[in-house]
């Protein structure tokens, strides 16, 4: 029998990032050619980053280019999640406090 394959995703965020790109393409918000170019650009400048870090960076850039969201919106939201996480006791689900 063949040996077991590598795990498909090493961490949950990799799976989420993967699924977002596949889902957006399936909805026609970008094409695979555009995706391959965006990912190819990041991989070319890969440096120390892992494959899925490049994947995420490509996705962040493409959603901005396609005007699905602005960079400012995204950065604000990152801070909101950071604050929410730090205010949530261990073991409880982290939820955004949307006021």
């Amino acid at each position: 029998m063949s040996p077991p394959d590598d795990p498909v995703f090493n961490e949950p965020w990799e799976a989420q990032a993967f699924a977002m790109a596949v889902s957006l393409e399936a909805k026609g918000l970008f094409t695979w050619t555009e995706w391959a170019e965006a990912l190819g650009r990041e991989i070319k400048a890969q440096g120390e980053r892992s494959y899925y870090e490049c994947w995420l960076a490509a996705l962040e850039r493409l959603v901005e280019e396609k005007r699905l969201m602005s960079a400012a919106e995204r950065l604000t939201r990152i801070n909101e999640w950071d604050r929410a996480a730090k205010a949530t006791p261990h073991g409880q689900p982290i939820e955004l406090d949307r006021s």
């Binding site: 949950p12 965020w13 989420q16 990032a17 977002m20 957006l24 995420l56 996705l59 962040e60 959603v63 699905l68 969201m69 919106e73 995204r74 950065l75 939201r77 990152i78 909101e80 999640w81 950071d82 996480a85 955004l96």
Partner: peptide, 11 residues
């Protein structure tokens, strides 16, 4: 993980 959560929640 914060970047992924931010992206996903906005989308």
């Amino acid at each position: 993980a914060l970047r992924v959560k931010a992206l996903e929640s906005l989308l």
